[in-house]
Computed example of a mutant assay.
Amino acid sequence: MKKVISALFISLLSFQLVQAQKKELTKHPDALNFLVMGDWGRNGEDHQKPVATQMGKAAKTLSTDFIIATGDNFYPSGVISEHDPLWKYSFEDIYTDFSLQWDWYPVLGNHDYKSNPDAQVAYSKISRRWKMPARYYSKIFSIHGDTTKQVLIAFIDTNPLIPQFYKGEYSNATIGQDSTAQKRWLEGVLANNSPTIKWKIVVGHHPLFTATQKRRESYDTRAVRASLKSVLDKYKVDAYLCGHDHDLQHLLPEGKTHYFVSGSASEKTEIGTLPISKLALSEYGFMAFSVTDKKLYVQVINHEGNIVYTTELTK
């Protein structure tokens, strides 16, 4: 009897998931719309192209304002210069839809640190859509053009926050980086208490929390959590967006901040769940965010264009 009930329960869950995947993208009027994707640059391989195709469709439906890339932009070892062929093979030739020709705001991942991270900064002077003015930076976006309703986003470099990166394969790119200066800068950005700023978001590569088995308490997860959690809590950051883990996650630990992992734009790996997990999915895909002054809507889309999860944050 227990086996029958268990089978029925699993069937019900499967049915609900299929039903959820049949939903069409919801477009929210008067919202700031952007896509979030990560861990992607593989010359089109391992589902990078199918994900890119669905990104183009979603961006068109939502009239996306920009795209956020959460790091590990070029596998296996970043780019060596702003003229590296990978710019063409992994970026320009893949994300070709007209709806993806708007601004891209990337952060650096650990694989990007294996070569020349500053080459990705330099590419901003060549590409009209690649917007990385420095290894870390911030920008204020108006919601639907209304300057009285804005979203503050800080794009950070989590690599120097990890002590182990100052030796070994990442050391050439990490030595000389002042992690204390970056944290002071981040606090200065987040301290902005203008009444026009309705939401505060931080984007980095490494997660503070993750249900991915091998990364839950890995040295990099623990280091970034120890470095950033108190800052995010202090300034009541609404959401932290990251990649690194090749899956799709939404986690809500103690505190105000919601944690989203979007790192499966061209690879997926196994994942478990945690008590704080609201979504833990091993699937190729990306996320779509729609932000109004009172609501932050999230839609998670897989490589087949199915919506596999939705949630909303309310002010």
Rank of each mutant, 00 (worst) to 15 (best):
D118H: 09
V202L: 02
F141T: 11
P163F: 02
R215F: 04
I197Y: 03
P160I: 12
S115W: 07
N159F: 01
W199M: 12
A134F: 07
A134E: 13
G176N: 14
L161S: 05
G176E: 08
S115R: 07
H206R: 06
F98Q: 13
D103A: 15
P117N: 07
R128P: 12
F91Q: 02
D118Y: 10
F209N: 13
T221S: 03
D146L: 07
G168I: 12
W130R: 04
P106M: 09
A181H: 11
E92F: 09
D118Q: 09
T180L: 14
G188Y: 09
S171R: 07
V224W: 03
R222K: 11
N159I: 12
I156N: 00
T212Y: 00
P195H: 11
I140Q: 03
V107P: 01
N110L: 01
V224K: 03
K139F: 12
T174M: 03
W199S: 13
Q101F: 10
Y219C: 03
A223Y: 07
T158W: 00
S127H: 04
A191C: 06
W199F: 12
T96G: 01
R184Y: 14
K131V: 15
V224H: 06
L108G: 12
D157R: 01
D220L: 06
T221L: 03
G109W: 07
D118A: 05
A122C: 02
A173R: 01
S127Y: 06
K149R: 08
S194N: 09
Y136S: 10
F165N: 08
K200C: 14
A119W: 02
E217D: 12
Y113K: 00
W199G: 10
D97W: 03
S179F: 04
N193F: 13
T174C: 00
K131G: 04
I201E: 00
Q177L: 15
A119E: 05
V189M: 01
Q101R: 11
S179T: 13
H205Y: 13
R215D: 05
P195S: 13
Y170G: 01
W130A: 10
R129V: 15
K198F: 09
D93E: 10
I156E: 00
W102F: 09
H206M: 13
A191D: 05
T221G: 04
I162H: 00
K167R: 08
I201T: 08
L208R: 01
N116F: 01
I156V: 14
D103E: 15
I143K: 01
S142Y: 11
A223V: 13
S115A: 12
K200H: 11
Q164A: 08
E169L: 05
S230K: 10
I175T: 10
L100Y: 05
V189N: 00
L100H: 10
K114V: 12
Y105A: 08
Y123I: 06
K114G: 02
W130M: 07
R129N: 15
Q164D: 14
A223P: 09
K229S: 10
A181P: 06
F141I: 15
M132F: 03
E187S: 15
F91S: 01
T196E: 04
D146G: 07
F155P: 07
S138R: 06
V203H: 04
Y219S: 14
E187C: 13
L108E: 08
Y166N: 08
P133C: 14
D220M: 06
K200V: 15
S218W: 05
T180V: 15
E169G: 02
R129D: 14
I175R: 05
V202F: 02
D112F: 09
A181E: 13
P160Q: 06
Q150R: 11
D146M: 07
Q164H: 08
Y170N: 06
Q182Y: 11
